[in-house]
Write a protein that binds this DNA or RNA. Structure first.
Lengths: 126, 126
DNA sequence: TTGTTCCATAAGCACTCACTTATGGAGAGG
DNA sequence: CCTCTCCATAAGTGAGTGCTTATGGAACAA
């Protein structure tokens, strides 16, 4: 939910997406990410560091200290949140996963389509 | 690719995400989208129209003219592009989908090459 | 015709945010 | 100790963009 929001906000930036694509090749220290990004165009080390911070806060990457290096890797938490948000959008049944029987009943019963009515017509809707 | 980039850029805005969530309940004319968004806070009709345009360009929604109304619905094109981008990130084999035979060969050869024995052998490399 | 509804576009503005340079802390080694 | 490498943070700046109000076109009704 709000995790998906943070992740999708982070994915809104093309440079951050490229960082993730770099990390999809395996974990790398921050410096290696900088080098990889520089093959697509000039960018400063602090810029990459700031992007990594945003991705970290969004759960899209993880960090591990190794000596003087900070090794980054793809983070399942954020990626799963995005995937679930997408599924929820597409799959109309997902929000009703709990009362599954009630939903099935409604679907079976339901083909007599009713259009929303006019004045005062707030129909019974489960 | 660039379709995923456009879609992810569009998904970077919270208001646009809410538009998609509204449309996940079924297709709606633009005015109904405005009404739905207003339940979360004040917003102008042009603002929603501009967001719908961005979503349309990104393939995340489709439009259909119906009389004087413009009926919007979720667009598969953009959503699929995002899903595939996510899969490509996570699945390390995806980039090698083309030379599938070569990959299979490599896998088979790897198994043949190392025939570790007994209980003690733990070395497992990917 | 006139009037009304629905919606997109134009123009302008404020604010976010991605970038830069400068700086300093933490670890490894001489 | 000192030095070098690696990296994060601070501070400031410019461009992008999401918002607003104003406007007009298109379809339908009277």
């Amino acid at each position: 939910m709000t995790a998906a929001a943070a992740a999708l906000d982070a994915l809104g930036d093309p440079t951050r997406r490229r960082v993730l694509e770099v990390l999809s090749g395996g974990e790398r220290p921050a410096g290696a990410v900088v080098d990889a990004l520089r093959e697509h165009g000039p960018i400063s080390q602090p810029a990459v560091s700031q992007h990594l911070r945003v991705l970290l806060d969004a759960g899209l990457v993880t960090v591990r200290a190794e000596g003087t290096r900070r090794v980054y890797a793809l983070g399942a938490e954020g990626l799963v949140a995005v995937r679930e948000w997408l599924v929820r959008l597409t799959d109309p049944l997902a929000p009703f996963a709990q009362p599954l029987d009630a939903l099935a009943t409604e679907v079976a019963r339901g083909r007599r389509a009713r259009r929303p009515e006019g004045p005062g017509g707030q129909a019974r809707r489960a």
